[in-house]
C-alpha cells in the first residue's frame, strides 16, 4: 500500500493527479475452469513418487471377483435402482445367517442410504477395487431392534424424501400424491407390538442423514463386518452381478 501512496504523491507533484485515494482496487476479474485431460503431460518425478504407493494397492485390487454385463449407476432409476437393490440385497443375504446364528432372530429388512453409493459399477470385470469404489468408507454393518412405531417412521421418512435409499425385505408403494399406499415388511403390514430387526450401517444408526428412527432402539447389534468387505464377499459368491429395478419402492403414476 505504501508504494502506491508514494507513486500517487509523485504524480500529484508532477501534476497529473490529486492524492486523495490511497489504495488499490480490483479493476477486472477473469474466471474459468481448466479441465485436466490427457493432453497435459504428467510430471515424471511425481509419477515415480506415486508409483510404489499405487503398485502395492494395485496388487491387491486387481483380483477379478465377478462380472457385470451392464454398467450400474445410482442415477439409473428413481425410487429404487439396480445398484442400490444389489447393495441392500447383499446385506440381507450375507447378514441374515450371521444374525440368526448369533441371536436366533431373523433379519427383517435392510436400509442403507442413497448418498452412500459412492461410485457406479462399470460394465465388465468386478474386482476388489469395485468394492472400494462403491464403498470407500470404513462403515460397519449394524442391526437395530425397531418397534412398529419406529418402523412407521422409517417408511414415513422414505415417503417424505422420495430418494432411492436402498432397501431390502420391505416394500413401499406411494400414491401419486406421495402419500403411503402400502408399507410392508416381508410381505406383511407393520404390527405395532412387534420388534423388527433392521440392518443398516453405523453412520446412519448414529444419526447420519437424520434417520433419527434408527436410534430408537434398545440395542445396537454391531456385526463387526465392514460394508465394503461384505460387498467384496458378495461379489466373490456370485459369478454375475446383474441386479434390476423392481417394485420394492415405487410411486404410482397418474
Amino acid at each position: 500500500m505504501k508504494k502506491i501512496v508514494f507513486f500517487l504523491c509523485t504524480l500529484s507533484i508532477i501534476g497529473f493527479h490529486s492524492c486523495k485515494e490511497k489504495s488499490i482496487a480490483i479493476s477486472k476479474i477473469e474466471g474459468k475452469e481448466i479441465k485436466i485431460t490427457d493432453s497435459i503431460t504428467s510430471n515424471k518425478d511425481l509419477d515415480e513418487f506415486i508409483k510404489p504407493y499405487s503398485d502395492r494397492i494395485e496388487e491387491e485390487m486387481s483380483t477379478t471377483l465377478a462380472y457385470a454385463p451392464k454398467a450400474l449407476s445410482k442415477s439409473d432409476a428413481k425410487f429404487n435402482t439396480p445398484i442400490g437393490n444389489m447393495e441392500a440385497d447383499a446385506v440381507m443375504e450375507l447378514l441374515s445367517p450371521i444374525l440368526f446364528n448369533r441371536t436366533q432372530h431373523n433379519l427383517d429388512g435392510v436400509l442403507l442410504n442413497y448418498g452412500g453409493i459412492r461410485s457406479s459399477i462399470n460394465k465388465g470385470n468386478i474386482t476388489t477395487k469395485t468394492g472400494y469404489n462403491i464403498m470407500p468408507f470404513e462403515n460397519e454393518a449394524v442391526v437395530v431392534r425397531l418397534n412398529g412405531e419406529a418402523m412407521q417412521e422409517l417408511f414415513n421418512y422414505l415417503a417424505e424424501h422420495q430418494t432411492a435409499h436402498p432397501i431390502a425385505g420391505m416394500q413401499l408403494i406411494l400414491n401419486t400424491n406421495g402419500s403411503i399406499k402400502k408399507a410392508l415388511v416381508k410381505g406383511n403390514p407393520i404390527k405395532k407390538d412387534r420388534i423388527y430387526y433392521i440392518a443398516t450401517n453405523d453412520y446412519l444408526q448414529k444419526g447420519g442423514d437424520h434417520m433419527d428412527f434408527l436410534s430408537k432402539t434398545d440395542t445396537v447389534i454391531n456385526m463387526n463386518y465392514k460394508l465394503r468387505n461384505l460387498f467384496i464377499d458378495y461379489f466373490k459368491k456370485k459369478d454375475t452381478i446383474a441386479p434390476v429395478k423392481d417394485d420394492r419402492f415405487i410411486k404410482l403414476e397418474e
Binding site: 488499490i24 482496487a25 480490483i26 479493476s27 476479474i29 477473469e30 475452469e33 481448466i34 479441465k35
Partner: peptide, 30 residues
C-alpha cells in the same frame, strides 16, 4: 470445480490504483 481433481479453477484478479476507476467499476469476465 466439481470434484476428484477433474478441473482446476482459475480466477485472475487485476488490480489498479483506486483513483483511476470508480470503486465498483470492475469488469468480470467469466
Amino acid at each position: 470445480t466439481g470434484w476428484a481433481g477433474i478441473n482446476l479453477g482459475r480466477i485472475d484478479f487485476y488490480l489498479d490504483e483506486q483513483n483511476n476507476i470508480s470503486a465498483d467499476g470492475m469488469a468480470i469476465e467469466v
